[in-house]
């Protein structure tokens, strides 16, 4: 599903966010990406979502070589991915259900069908009763769950999450991680960046350590262990 070959990302200022990173995550697998702040976790996720382009190296996602992917094909490629941000990035000018429906609007779902899917996604994250609420009236944990509902509402094959529990207390963090495990159980490939080692080490999934832009080459399979 995800394959990085000797990927380096250097920003304009000259700092190298990733150095020669190689990684393989099979379809249906779930892996955690950890490391201290500034280790390059967000950059790696942004490269996989084609929000950034690598300075060197090759990235294949879902059978597509992102280097040769035409610009016009990028939107279609992004529709196969669900992205969760640490700061949720919800739109505060519209209610919860409209936030979650955004990817479905882009895909051209009819209103009735979209509403059904939005309700199913909100039900999955335990927020069905809040569908008409304004995001600013929700707690941080609820806002994060709305962000997750938005990321999965169009049933993407790949879910990328950048510090999804960054601002949450331990109980809420566990609940959110459990959601990702549930999605993975029904076949979604997931790569989740988190610096909360204590939380993720107890979940029995492979953990990739990024340190100053370096990652030991890894191959994450659908099985529990990594090789």
């Amino acid at each position: 599903m995800i394959r990085l070959q000797r990927v380096t990302k250097r920003f304009d200022g000259g700092s190298e966010a990733l150095s020669n990173v190689s990684l393989r995550v099979d379809a249906g697998a779930l892996a955690f990406l950890t490391g201290p702040s500034g280790a390059g976790k967000s950059t790696l996720l942004r490269l996989i979502a084609r929000l950034e382009r690598p300075t060197r190296g090759r990235i294949m996602v879902n059978g597509k070589d992102l280097e040769t992917l035409p610009r016009s094909e990028v939107p279609r490629f992004r529709r196969s991915i669900g992205l969760v941000f640490q700061d949720h990035r919800l739109l505060f000018d519209r209610p919860v259900h409209a936030n979650v429906a955004l990817p479905l609007e882009i895909l051209g779902y009819r209103r009735g069908e979209a509403r059904k899917r939005v309700r199913a996604a909100l039900d999955k994250v335990g927020l069905l009763q809040k569908e008409n609420a304004q995001p600013q009236t929700l707690s941080a944990g609820e806002q994060q769950r709305v962000g997750i509902a938005r990321a999965i509402v169009h049933r993407p094959a790949l879910l990328l999450a950048d510090e999804p529990t960054g601002n949450l207390d331990p109980r809420l963090s566990r609940e959110i991680m459990q959601l990702f495990l549930d999605f993975n159980r029904v076949g979604v490939t997931a790569l989740i960046a988190s610096h909360n080692l204590e939380l993720i080490s107890g979940l029995g999934k492979p953990i990739l350590h990024l340190e100053s832009g370096n990652l030991e080459a890894r191959h994450v399979t659908q099985a529990r262990s990594a090789g």
Binding site: R79, S80, L107, G108, Y109, R110, E113, K116, R117, I152, H154, R155, P156, A157, F183, V186, G187, V188
Partner: peptide, 8 residues
């Protein structure tokens, strides 16, 4: 989870 069913 694949995208599909119900989409116009």
């Amino acid at each position: 989870m694949k995208d599909g069913g119900g989409r116009a």
